[in-house]
Design a protein around this nucleic acid. Structure first.
Length: 709
RNA sequence: GCCAAUGUAGCUCAGUGGUAGAGCAACGGUUUCGUAAACCGUCGGUCGCCGGUUCAAUCCCGGCCAUUGGCUCCA
């Protein structure tokens, strides 16, 4: 096994990006040919033990760049400064990260950005003192003792305030591995290094934000305050970094989406995470859908349409309910039939009575407890009344019922059912993020039912479809992630995966072989599979560096069986098909959010919300008539063309069109009209001069048809 | 969901314990102009919502909602 770290994904040249964690897991891969496009890889061996994702191996540490050492050292300096201000602070982990460093600290005082100046002041003192980062190897017993005395991650011994997180960190250090301290001035930290020579080697730094994080990334652990900062070799680089951040913010899809009028999120009337597609944004979605429909029709997919809701039984059968996926689904709506409504009202009335009675009693009395029991029984009684309907969070169960709607023969396979519909997922409020993470999802979804023999070819075809799409959009920076199951989670309280050990092995091997044989680069991530089978996700990064799954391709060997899906094989025996869930364009929301940032709003002609704007110089009637005819011709050819025939000066009209990121501007003045020309101007390319009207229109139609970048 | 910060006009943002401004946008008019902003005027806000303190709250305090930055989770 190898740990994979890679750099420079969505950061500008010269800035080192290290991704240590990948959805909570360290990236593993068994492959040697780890040339992930186009990320640079640094490989290092990994210990046989299940890794703590926070922990780097010694080998990885040895390879830390100068910049990482500066940042890591700066984290220690920050801890030193925080301790000068709040000596009781307890520290957990303080590594360098993609664009800087952080240190997790437990402290009753809530550190806010207002505290940054005084922390930075202390840090400057520590840097000015130019202390040496002194390394010391100590026996484990001494380390434990120093942690208990509060000396680790402290300036002095702190009786009664042991370094509790350092004790936990010590446990993660394998037996036999050297335990080392680093000391700068009074500050001693349990740390494997490496550091710069002296605190004075930290060139320029700045604290950036404060957040919270669970100790060791586990939500059962205490929440710590995570103080983020960044550091560079010198002030120039530090300033360049902040300039870059400002630039990145300008292409944030939320900002551009607002400016260009692509979508709106009306939290008051519609709800958080439920974007409204404005006409211009919807136009992009339509284009994506058109691309998908053309591609999929040619590849033998058939479109189906299904309702947005289904009975509870559907999801109990699929396994999404009662527990596994319940949190991610909107609560059900219930339809009461017959006398159920009456029974419900009676139960409610009784509940009110019970509450009143209970108020008069001592909470711990037997009678109160009995009433409480009755109250709960009534709740569960009500819960059982009526038929529950759920908003669908995925299309697969509906598609399974389509499979079941007719008798199937092996001759029908592979059966590829595609749907362009909306699903609804109840994402946690803190997860919502512009278009990238929403609660209503328009999916380019399909399910392929096939035999084991057909699997490899079908699975490959899906992967090729991704790559074809990515080429069209010029998406080059992505990582394919192959998620497998964790055998220890097939049964028991912590069970996450269907208990079919052999099928897991078989399908995972199939996927791995398919990937290897097709030469696709990927990383393998244990324990991240869907509950019904292994999957491949395509990971990309938003402009502010947040990671997202764009496309997905999943194997399902479990759910078709639960629905009793079968086809009659050649040997006259009924067999269960495999199912491939795939969404090469992910959801429209996320894909478009990504594309907005990818293109910085400057969409290619075929995708541009407003493809052409015709601008007249002045508003004389004959000129306007000439221009109107051009708009009409374009529109009758399905070109999204708008007109600006106002009396504003042409400079102002061009300014408006450029600001709106209109792809092609056709400027028409009296001279053009007389010659049967239009003056062509393309967004970002400036004035391309006068050309015959017919030629320009033909070229526009051609470029759209060919989806030219 | 958790931790923190933020919430002033459609947008970007000033500002104050004595019920608010600017630029852009929008609208009306003047201008008839050749490739990134012509000129004049008008409209526009229960200062996120609810409650508390106060003679008086947009400002201080509390709760809620939403957003942002993270964590956890995911397409």
């Amino acid at each position: 096994m190898q740990v994979v770290r890679f750099s420079t994904l969505r950061t500008p040249p010269g800035f080192d990006l290290t991704i240590q964690r990948f959805n909570g897991s360290t990236i593993h891969s068994t492959v040697q040919r780890l040339k992930l496009c186009p990320a640079t890889l640094i490989l290092g061996p990994m210990s046989a033990e299940k890794p703590n994702p926070e922990r780097k191996t010694l080998d990885e540490r040895a390879k830390m760049s100068e910049l990482e050492r500066i940042r890591h050292s700066c984290a220690h300096v920050m801890a030193t400064a925080i301790l000068r201000l709040w000596p009781e602070a307890q520290f957990a982990a303080g590594p360098p990260v993609e664009n800087g460093f952080y240190y997790d600290v437990d402290l009753p005082h809530r550190i806010s950005p207002e505290d940054f100046p005084k922390i930075e002041e202390e840090m400057k003192k520590e840097i000015k003192a130019n202390h040496i980062f002194e390394k010391k190897i100590v026996p484990r017993e001494q380390a434990i003792q120093d942690a208990q005395s509060g000396r680790l991650g402290g300036l002095t011994e702190r009786p009664g305030n042991p370094s509790k997180f350092k004790i936990g960190n010590l446990e993660d250090i394998p037996e036999g591995e050297a335990i080392s301290y680093y000391q700068n001035g009074d500050f001693i930290d349990l740390c494997a290094g490496p550091h710069v020579m002296r605190t004075g080697n930290i060139g320029a730094f700045k604290l950036t934000s404060v957040a919270s994080a669970y100790y060791k990334g586990d939500e059962r652990n205490p929440q710590l305050q995570r103080i983020y900062g960044t550091a560079f070799k010198n002030k120039t680089e530090l300033e360049a970094y902040f300039t870059m951040l400002e630039e990145a913010k300008k292409r944030d899809h939320r900002k551009i989406g607002q400016e260009m009028g692509l979508f709106a999120i009306d939290t008051e009337y519609v709800g958080p995470g439920l974007p409204l597609w404005l006409p211009k944004g919807a136009a992009i979605a339509e284009e994506l859908e058109k691309l998908a429909k053309e591609t999929e029709f040619a590849a033998g997919y058939r479109i189906v349409k299904t309702p947005h809701i289904a009975k509870e039984k559907m999801y109990l059968t699929s396994g999404h309910l009662p527990i596994l996926y319940a949190e991610s689904m909107f609560p059900p709506m219930r339809l009461l039939e017959g006398d159920e409504e009456k029974r419900e009202q009676e139960a409610f009335a009784r509940m009110v009575d019970i509450r009143e009675l209970k108020k008069k009693l001592d909470e711990n009395s037997t009678e109160a407890k009995e009433l409480e029991k009755n109250f709960r029984r009534l709740i569960s009684e009500i819960d059982l009344l009526g038929t529950k309907y759920y908003l669908k969070a995925m299309n697969c169960p509906h598609h399974h019922r389509i499979f079941a709607a007719e008798p199937r023969s092996y001759r029908d396979l592979p059966l590829r059912l595609a749907e362009y519909g909306t699903c609804y997922r109840y994402e946690q409020s803190g997860e919502l993020f512009g278009l990238m993470r929403v609660r209503s999802l328009n999916m380019n979804d399909a399910h392929i039912y096939c035999t084991t023999e057909q699997f490899a070819q079908e699975f490959n075809a899906v992967n090729e479809m991704y790559l074809k799409y990515f080429k069209i959009f010029g998406i080059e920076k992505y990582v394919m992630r192959f998620s497998t199951h964790d055998p220890s989670r097939l049964t028991g309280d912590n069970a996450k995966f269907v208990n079919e050990p052999e099928l897991w092995k078989k399908t995972e091997d199939m996927v791995r072989d398919t990937l290897k044989n097709s030469g696709i680069n990927y990383v393998e991530v244990p324990n991240e599979a869907a509950f019904y089978g292994p999957k491949i996700d395509v990971q990309v990064w938003s402009v502010i560096g947040r990671e997202f799954t764009l496309a997905t391709n999943q194997v399902d060997f479990a759910v078709p069986k639960r629905f009793g899906l079968v086809y009659r094989d050649k040997d006259n025996i009924d067999k269960t098909p495999l199912c491939i869930h795939r969404a090469p364009l992910g959801t429209h929301e996320r894909f478009i959010g990504f594309l907005i940032e990818h293109y910085a709003g400057n969409f290619p002609l075929w995708l541009a919300p407003e493809q052409v704007r015709v601008l007249t110089i002045g508003d004389e009637a004959p000129l306007v008539d000439y221009a109107k005819a051009i708009v009409k011709e374009l529109r009758s050819n399905m070109v999204r063309a708008e007109a600006d025939f106002t009396t504003n000066p042409i400079k102002a009209k061009i300014q408006d069109a450029e600001t709106a990121k209109v792809h092609t501007m056709l400027v028409i003045g009296p001279r053009d009209m007389q010659a049967g020309n239009v003056s062509l101007r393309v967004h970002g390319k400036g004035n391309l001069g006068a050309k015959p009207k017919a030629d320009v229109i033909a070229e526009i139609l051609c470029a759209i048809k060919e989806r030219r970048g």
